[in-house]
Nucleic acid binder design. Structure first.
Lengths: 346, 346
DNA sequence: AGGTACTGTGGGAGCGCTCCCACAAGTGAT
DNA sequence: ATCACTTGTGGGAGCGCTCCCACAGTACCT
């Protein structure tokens, strides 16, 4: 029961089979309401009998869309797998996309070469939209996307003046809550190991740290702030420096769980007990936090939820752009609340 | 300097600009040798001036190919991120693909729902070929691919009678080498925690284990063999059973590092020293093996290399099929050597 | 009765390529 | 000079859809 030339059945063949025109079949396939029930049933029967599956290439050509979006990770694969952040986000993205026709592509653009390939790829408009995660302040990718007029949503704005639609967690509030928690536990000399400061979110956590101290009538002591780089080794280095400068510190707020793990090692080596001598708070509430000894108090970001919201917004942008509708510039910056998960390290 | 209607430039426009015909531009774009140097230069100049990028959809429609291949993972995302196996394979795949026009899609098909979506996807011929990893014995996916006549390469054949092109590491040899190593260290009561036995590779490791013992004049003791499931918890369970049945065992060969980690915990709890009382050997040589205490002797599989070979073979199959050339059925089952990495656990 | 509106349908035009046939021009043997 | 190739080139046809215009049919107003 195969069609002409042994190939896959076409719209036209379905139309012939159902005794209707091409347009009608197209309408049924695309769920247009302007089809009578009887006709719809006839077409659906023909589709089933022939095992018809639309030709995506033809559709893409005619409709000028691809029904695909890309999750672009401007990091090497290794990093992607190492950080649970991405896995959680992917879960949210996948979930939100699962009742859609959209196909998700995962594109790594760590090196220069991959960068160039990606630029070509985007220039060819091979995707309808882009999800951008983990972007640094000076990354030109967002501007390229804007120039190509490709709908895009960024996770973590590059700055307060981000022009792209973005979804973020409340890094400022997260930083505040960590410090407020430590203050409430009676800590007074609270150090902060920051993330990479060219990441806006890390910057905001520092702001939260500062303001929480200020609101408690305590000006931040610059010697208690040491920049890290989100790695374990960076956490170790920062902790060592902090202990050298302020041996009397009684708490550490690290900008990520991984850095907290590094800090913990140094504290142990120096004979400081956690939390008795020094309280420790991390950020991300990743698996590391739960398995650390002692279990780590950490600021949880709703990463999966962020993934879902990003898809929401992106699909919205894509839909908006289709009939060249006016775009509302409000509510393009979504910020989700964080939550402090208290464990025995503080 | 943009083309008609503000859209992207088309082949036709490039042709006009270069003062040649459409066919000629197409030949240049596709690297046909049948173009004079002067013409080629003119076309390339026009392409550069207009910033021409071919429309993939149109090409796909006209040429009946997609220039995309899928890496299908019949597991939930979680598993994918948890096991370093996938990350290494992806690295090899990416590397081998990087000087190609092929786009790689990553598709997870853990649940039933995803399965059905994937089937639709494949039926629509949205990829030119498929890479299949981690397939169980009773998985219908390979047959679906065969039926749809989609080129595919499988990592780890389903059985000795695998019909699909496959790339595998020498599981049999790996199992042998682990046991031979333990024998050479003077161990005589060597237990084996197997992987999931519906995975052909796990089965083969058992075969290697058995044959190595037999060749040493020692028949395998069935009470020393306990099936696991590749998880840490499974390793614990199996180890507990083995110790119960054969408290005098002096070595354990685990079918994966993760299971070895589980076994190690139980051995510790039972007060057995590693390697003094019980020698331990794992499989995969993953990060776990290096970081274990004591560092774990393990059988290394060249996973990245496997990824590269899979792409090689797949691209070959795709190319072969294009002009309906006869296919050679030899060398369709590639087996790569494993290597025992000796550390202090044995 | 005529008008106006809406609903459902058919099919032409066209999306931007590749494939392939036709053909001009050049090359070398006869 | 003729023929037979080869090389380089132009452009028609067609890939399988979507978009949209045209139009028949029906419904409901004047």
């Amino acid at each position: 029961m195969r069609s002409r030339s042994g190939g896959r059945p076409t719209l036209e063949e379905v139309a012939a089979r159902a005794g209707v025109g091409r347009g009608t079949v197209s309408r049924v396939i695309n769920g247009s309401p302007r089809v009578s029930d009887a006709t719809r049933a006839a077409v659906e029967a023909a589709v089933a009998e022939l095992g018809y599956v639309p030709n995506t290439a033809a559709r893409a050509l005619a409709a000028n869309r691809t029904d695909a979006i890309a999750l672009v990770v401007p990091e090497p694969e290794t990093r992607f797998f190492a950080e649970p952040y991405f896995s959680d986000m992917l879960k949210g993205v996948g979930a939100e996309l699962s009742d859609t026709e959209m196909q998700l592509l995962l594109i790594f653009a760590g090196g220069d070469r991959e960068r160039r390939r990606l630029a070509q790829y985007l220039a060819a408009h091979r995707v309808d939209g882009v999800l951008l995660v983990s972007v640094h302040a000076d990354d030109p990718l967002p501007d390229l996307l804007a120039q190509l007029e490709i709908p895009a949503v960024i996770s973590g704005p590059r700055s307060a003046a981000e022009t792209l639609t973005s979804v973020d967690s409340d890094n400022y509030g997260g930083g505040r809550s960590a410090v407020e928690h430590l203050l409430s536990r009676g800590r007074r000399k609270i150090a902060h190991i920051t993330g990479r400061l060219d990441v806006y979110g890390a910057q905001r956590r520092v702001d939260g740290y500062r303001d929480a101290l200020r609101d408690a009538g305590q000006e931040a002591d610059e010697l208690l702030i040491e920049p890290g780089d989100f790695t374990e080794e960076g956490g170790r280095r920062a902790m060592t420096k902090l202990l050298g400068r302020r041996p009397d510190l009684d708490a550490v707020f690290a900008g990520s769980d991984v850095m907290a793990a590094g800090a913990r090692q140094v504290l142990r080596e120096e004979g400081r007990r956690i939390p008795d001598d020094v309280a420790l708070v991390g950020y991300d509430d990743s698996a590391i936090a739960r398995h650390m000894d002692p279990p780590l108090t950490s600021v949880r970001q709703p990463i999966e939820e962020m993934g879902r919201r990003m898809i929401d917004l992106l699909l919205g942008e894509i839909a908006d752009r289709r009939p060249a509708v006016s775009r509302d510039l409000e509510r393009r910056q979504v910020v989700l609340a964080t939550e402090l998960v208290t464990r025995t390290s503080s």
